[in-house]
């Protein structure tokens, strides 16, 4: 086989290798959450796409006084214990720790994809939601009494120990829109 032909074969071959690049299984990802941002190399974090915003959340807490521990339970029921700090945005902090929380509008208060349930007594302690947030929550699937938008929650010292759940959303979605509406309403009433 001639060299150019070989090179062609080689070139053909490289992209297909790229396709088969090894991706960390979820379990390993979850272990990363126990790392503290300051103990991790910067290179590790630059591989996460969610970090284009949320710079503040990457900074380490100034002192132990500033630390706010929260627990987030994702859609699959996996618990994430996150060590945050005062002033952190809940959505961005959770994204930083690889929780499957979406933020389609990037915290610009234009969607409701970061919809979460905040468990008592912490729900009561949060500031009253803005009218705009309430308007968006009205569109959120599986709305409940303790629904909030994750991107509107800033951590404070009195929120230490807060438990936050992501909507499970495993209800069967029916074909017709009326059926779907019905299912969603049922879900609301059972919560």
């Amino acid at each position: 086989m001639s060299l150019p032909a070989l090179r062609a074969l080689h070139n053909l071959f490289i992209p297909s290798l790229k396709v088969r690049c090894i991706v960390l299984p979820r379990r390993i990802h979850h272990k990363i959450r126990h790392f503290e941002p300051r103990t991790c190399s910067k290179a590790l974090f630059t591989t996460y796409s969610a970090l284009q915003h949320g710079e503040y959340e990457r900074l380490p807490p100034k002192s132990e006084e500033d630390v706010v521990n929260i627990r987030v339970v994702d859609r699959d029921g996996i618990e994430f214990d996150i060590r945050g700090k005062v002033g952190d945005n809940l959505m961005m902090l959770a994204q930083l720790h690889d929780v499957d929380i979406e933020g389609a509008c990037e915290a610009s208060l234009a969607c409701c994809t970061c919809h979460v349930y905040v468990e008592e007594p912490y729900f009561e302690r949060l500031d009253e939601p803005d009218v705009k947030e309430e308007d968006l929550l009205d569109m959120a699937p599986f709305l409940a009494e303790n629904s909030r938008l994750g991107c509107q929650i800033l951590l404070r010292k009195d929120l230490d120990g807060m438990l936050v759940r992501l909507p499970v959303g495993t209800r069967n979605m029916r074909v017709d829109q009326k059926g779907q509406q019905k299912e969603e309403n049922e879900d609301r009433s059972t919560r």
């Binding site: 969607c111 409701c112 994809t113 599986f142 959303g169 979605m173 074909v175 017709d176 779907q180």
Partner: peptide, 18 residues
């Protein structure tokens, strides 16, 4: 395409994850 033209991006997201 599956559920009809109703709902915002969050409902489409929930449905697509499902």
């Amino acid at each position: 395409a599956g559920s009809g033209p109703v709902g915002v991006i969050a409902s489409t997201m929930t449905q697509s994850f499902q």
